[in-house]
Amino acid sequence: MPSERATDTTPFAAMDVLERASELEGVVHMEVGEPDFRPPEAAAEAAVAALQAGDDDYTTSRGTASLREAISDYYAETYGVDVSTERIVVTPGSSPALLLALLSTVDPGEEVVLTDPYYACYPNFVRQADGTITTVELDPADGYEPSVDAYEQVVDEDTAAMLLNSPANPTGAVTSGETISELVDLAEQTDTMVVSDEVYHGLAFDAEEHTVLEYTDDAFVLDGVSKRYGMTGWRLGWAVCPPAYVEAVNRISQNVLICAPPFVQAGAEAAIREGNDQLAEHREAYRERRDLLLEAAERWGFDVGYTPEGAYYLLLDVSDLGDAFDVADVFLEEAGVAMTPGPDFGDGASDYLRASFARSTEDVREAIERIDELLATTTT
Rank of each mutant, 00 (worst) to 15 (best):
M1I: 04
E4V: 12
L18C: 08
R20L: 15
R20W: 07
L24P: 00
V28P: 09
M30C: 15
G33L: 09
R38Y: 11
A46Q: 06
A50Y: 03
A50N: 10
Q52H: 00
Y58K: 05
T60S: 08
R62S: 10
R62D: 05
S66I: 06
E69P: 02
A70F: 06
Y74Q: 01
Y74W: 12
Y75P: 03
V83P: 05
T91W: 05
S94W: 01
L98S: 12
L102G: 12
L103V: 02
T105R: 13
V106C: 09
E110M: 12
T115A: 13
T132R: 15
T135D: 07
V136G: 14
D142I: 09
E145M: 10
D149H: 08
A150I: 00
L164F: 08
S166E: 02
A168F: 05
G172K: 00
A173Y: 05
S176W: 08
S176C: 08
A187T: 06
T192P: 15
L203R: 03
L203E: 04
A204I: 00
F205Y: 15
A207V: 06
H210S: 13
L222M: 07
L222V: 15
D223G: 09
R228N: 01
G230R: 02
G233I: 03
W234V: 09
V240D: 06
C241H: 11
C241Q: 14
Y245N: 12
F263W: 14
V264G: 00
G267W: 04
L294F: 08
T307Q: 13
L315Y: 02
D317A: 02
D323H: 05
A324Y: 02
V327K: 03
A328Y: 00
A335N: 11
G336L: 07
G342Y: 04
P343L: 01
G348N: 11
R354M: 12
S360M: 14
T361R: 10
T361H: 06
R365D: 13
A367C: 07
R370I: 00
I371S: 09
L375C: 10
T377N: 13
